[in-house]
Design a protein around this nucleic acid. Sequence first.
DNA 1: ACATTTTGACTATCTCTGACTATTATTATA
DNA 2: TATAATAATAGTCAGAGATAGTCAAAATGT
Lengths: 153, 153
Amino acid sequence: MARLSDIIEDFLKGLIIEEEGTVEIQRNELANKFNCVPSQINYVISTRFTAEKGYYVESRRGGGGYISIKRVNSDSAGDYLMHIITSIGDRISQLTSEVFINNFLDYNIIEIREAMIMKAATSDKALIGVPADKRDDVRAAILKNMLMSMTVL
Amino acid sequence: MARLSDIIEDFLKGLIIEEEGTVEIQRNELANKFNCVPSQINYVISTRFTAEKGYYVESRRGGGGYISIKRVNSDSAGDYLMHIITSIGDRISQLTSEVFINNFLDYNIIEIREAMIMKAATSDKALIGVPADKRDDVRAAILKNMLMSMTVL
DNA sequence: ACATTTTGACTATCTCTGACTATTATTATA
DNA sequence: TATAATAATAGTCAGAGATAGTCAAAATGT
């Protein structure tokens, strides 16, 4: 466990926990802190903070450049979503659905545009072609499906 | 750390919101305010206020010269969407729907997460509760509804 | 032996700067 | 008044500076 990469990994994960899910660093600065070449930071990120492991990485070069790492699933947001998904029964009304969606917005799990899409997809207007007695069933399925897609990214 | 360009960008966007869609500045004055060379203003404008991002820029040199930036209510995207919406018939298969959604992604009209939500909402999996012979009708209605919601924001 | 980690040379991208150019308005002059 | 000179702006572009990315070789670990 004396590997530098592991140490850097732990350091970043610690920051991510502190910052509640996200961290932004400067590659050179971090390399300097750990006395290694900058490209080692890339190595750590590409081996430890992959999408499969639930991280989303963004970066920018040039003056004021940065690397940001976000923890996407597994934890908080993903767990919360999975919890919600299982708590949604087999049927849901348009109103209840909107309440849920507004909650996701409040919890910063989705963006405003994403919320609008979800509401549009689960509105009675969109489901007009579904027999009224089946509508809430279909709505629940659509909502759950959309939420499931959010647990991945 | 925060790039000057970003700071100037935010400043201008703030003004645009205040002034409800348009702002007029003098290049030298603004450069002076942010302690940079005037050409940096051009840099900010050419990288952040492009037509693709929904802005229309006009300017004039000479005494009393100015640069004006207008938020051109991304009607281009909105128009394109409306056009697509009307071109979608009353029925659409999951595959065709995905092709459309991928196109929106390519045209930068929606984000990757938004695309995922849309695909989830229009998948056969989500519409399992809809009688097979009605499924493509419902899918078309849902897709159109989601797209409509994108035209306003 | 094979896999993983570390390193560094080279590349790519973004930002900032300044010298030079272009355009428009104003003032002076014929 | 028409024209020329001057002042006041904005535009362009290439180079310098500041970061981050890539990839393969060397080192190290198992």
